[in-house]
Nucleic acid binder design. Structure first.
Length: 430
RNA sequence: GUGGCUGUAGCUCAGCUGGUUAGAGCGCCAGGUUGUGGCCCUGGAGGCCGUGGGUUCGACUCCCAUCAGCCACCCCA
């Protein structure tokens, strides 16, 4: 066993896994293109204060999951645990001013959280996500949800196999009044709550709704819910979101208990689950919501733009995809495997490989040569679509032998050594 | 961060209550077949039994530590 190992919670990605990851990202990018969201890149590490202020001091992410370090000049930096705060910071820093246009941005890349690893949960993981900035319209919330939906559809996940769980937690004002009501309610039963919930009461009150402790569940079950205490304007916003989801035939369910653990969320919050797996701990395919106050928080109130977005964990989504049906799109295929017989065929064979590559095909050649049988076996291992055979006989005759893999009976002789363009036979094999 | 399960060949796993040279299937390589792949037969390579310490005449097996993976929490993607 090697003494040098990948650090805990990190993974090496080899084919075909690596290609499946790329495919998930590609399906995401395709959906972004359809909705006109364009790619943004921001640094993988940022000033630590960006996250303590943006994500929230009392969140688990900031309290115990950040990879924080000092650089050689003593600057406090952290590997990004999520990307929303970074994107907003970048926009503020770029001095963007919005004159009514909407900024629609998409991203993908590695994120870092010092969490205890499990399946679908890594310390370095890939996330894809979007941010739609500059409009309070509920239709933009819907656009964000639909983009996420389309991305999952692109991966071959059936509409009936997914469900959007939605809720609204209102704006900052709603939240302040609601939290007061909720705390008052919980104070009455404080002694009976579990230790976690007792500490949550003051720091992250909303999270009591997520407690799995049966006693807490019971006590919390008749607590007031945020959705019932938001302003009528905000309720109307939420109703439009619901109405639109309904009109598009999206599978959805309102769940008044979902609240999101990052401080910046406001109004609409949502998660998408595989149907029937809404309780699974790492089961959410994506999660997001509105964060209308984040600009103000990160710009000391100088700028104040509304925004909405989602993020999705690539390794988790990967688990929900039916790869038997997707692999032919995901895994890169080799068009030609060139088999050679005898050392003196190598240089001539390589000329054919070059031609194939320049004609736009993928082609590999087995320089180890050796027995035909071994070379054929290697071509199978690589799943090559066709085989070219080049030996002394072929060179003398000025031809190559061409065999499509799927029918071993077929063998054509092609004289393509001097051809400028690919012969018809390989463009449309028999 | 808390609690629990696991760690033997590239992969999936056997290895009984401690006892000689640690096994199987699949895969890989070679030969049967020195120019034609999926089958078959034969042979071969490959393990400090996760790592370090301890108990013992003797440890893959028991104890401790450590590392890693997984599960349930916590939380999130």
């Amino acid at each position: 066993m090697a003494e040098l190992k990948a650090p805990r919670g990190t993974i090496d990605r080899f084919p075909p896994y690596s290609e499946r990851c790329e495919h998930v990202i590609k399906c995401f990018v395709d959906a972004c293109r359809a909705h006109d969201y364009r790619i943004v890149h921001t640094p993988t590490f940022e000033d630590t204060r960006l996250f303590t202020r943006g994500v929230g001091e009392s969140t688990d992410i900031v309290m115990k999951e950040m990879y924080s370090f000092k650089d050689k000049k003593g600057r406090d930096l952290s590997l990004r645990p999520e990307m929303t705060a970074g994107v907003i910071r970048a926009l503020i820093e770029a001095g963007r001013r919005y004159t009514g246009q909407i900024e629609k941005l998409a991203y993908y890349g590695p994120m870092f959280r010092y969490d205890r690893p499990q399946k679908g949960r890594y310390r370095e993981f890939f996330q894809v996500g979007i941010e739609a900035i500059g409009d309070t319209s509920p239709y933009l919330d819907v656009d964000v949800i639909l983009l996420g939906w389309d991305y999952l559809l692109n991966l071959g996940i059936k509409p009936d196999d997914m469900v959007v769980i939605v809720n609204s937690i209102g704006d900052a004002e709603d939240r302040k009044t609601y939290l007061k009501i909720l705390r008052e309610h919980l104070k009455k039963v404080e002694d009976e709550l579990c230790d976690d919930c007792k500490s949550r009461l003051d720091t992250n009150t909303l999270r009591v709704f997520d407690c799995k402790n049966p006693k807490c569940k019971e006590l919390v079950s008749d607590a007031p819910r945020p959705l019932k205490h938001i302003s009528s304007a905000n309720r109307e916003h939420f109703d439009i979101v619901i109405k639109m989801l309904e009109s598009f035939g999206i599978n959805y369910r309102i769940d008044e208990d979902i609240v999101r653990g990052l401080d910046y969320y406001t109004h609409t919050v949502f998660e998408v689950f595989p149907t029937g797996e809404e309780e699974a701990s790492q089961g959410a395919l994506l999660g997001g919501g509105r964060y209308d106050g984040l600009f103000a928080t990160l710009s000391n109130g100088e700028l104040d733009f509304p925004a909405v977005g989602f993020a999705s964990g690539v390794e988790r989504v990967l688990e929900a995809v039916d790869w038997d049906s997707q692999d032919k799109k995901a895994i890169s295929e080799l068009d030609f495997y060139v088999v050679i017989l005898g050392d003196n065929a190598k240089s001539q064979a390589y000329k054919i490989v070059r031609k194939l590559q320049q004609w736009g095909f993928s082609a590999d050649i087995d320089y180890r040569a050796g027995k035909l049988k071994s070379q054929f076996k290697r071509s199978e291992a690589r799943n090559a679509k066709s085989i070219m055979i080049i030996g002394d006989d072929e060179i003398n005759a000025g031809i190559v032998k061409f065999k499509p893999s799927k029918d071993k009976e077929i063998e054509l002789s092609l004289s393509c050594f001097d051809m400028e363009n690919p012969p018809d036979e390989i463009m449309s094999p028999p």
